[in-house]
């Protein structure tokens, strides 16, 4: 079966990590992928320039949801600066698959949402 749907991606899409709302978040953002109708929203709590907690909620294909699950796991505890410096290829490394241009949009929706979320005005304690 499709190598795109490796066990690990299916696992993350079926049992997403960091899924839900974050009550004390100081950043919130949303993004949509119009070609799929995928949508993601993220809540992030930053303290002293670090991402101390993060949650996402969304609706969409396995790739977009698994990518959000992977990404939120990966940035938790990292600095905002590091998270903002993430690029397309970093996401592809996380997912470990090659994607067609159409599915790339699904995979990158999580990164777009994260960057939008972090760009929001915040009440970071720095």
């Amino acid at each position: 079966m499709s190598s795109l749907y490796q066990a690990i991606i299916l696992d993350h899409s079926k049992h997403p990590r960091n899924c839900g709302e974050l009550e004390h978040a100081n950043h919130h953002g949303e993004a949509k992928n119009p070609t799929c109708g995928d949508s993601l929203s993220m809540d992030v709590l930053t303290e002293n320039g670090l991402i101390s907690d993060i949650r996402f909620q969304g609706q969409g294909c396995a790739i977009s949801q698994a990518s959000a699950s992977f990404l939120t796991e990966s940035v938790k505890g990292k600095s905002v600066e590091e998270a903002l410096a993430l690029e397309r290829d970093d996401i592809l490394v996380l997912l470990g698959v090659e994607l067609s241009p159409n599915r790339l949009k699904c995979a990158l929706l999580s990164l777009e949402t994260l960057k939008k979320t972090l760009a929001q005005d915040s009440t970071d304690t720095v």
């Binding site: 079966m1 795109l4 294909c61």
Partner: peptide, 21 residues
């Protein structure tokens, strides 16, 4: 199962369907 996942997996089997809006 999201329609895009359906279309992608079928596409890998050379079955061409459309998914989305």
């Amino acid at each position: 199962i999201h329609p895009h996942d359906i279309a992608q997996i079928l596409g890998d089997r050379d079955i061409c369907i459309r998914a989305g809006e």
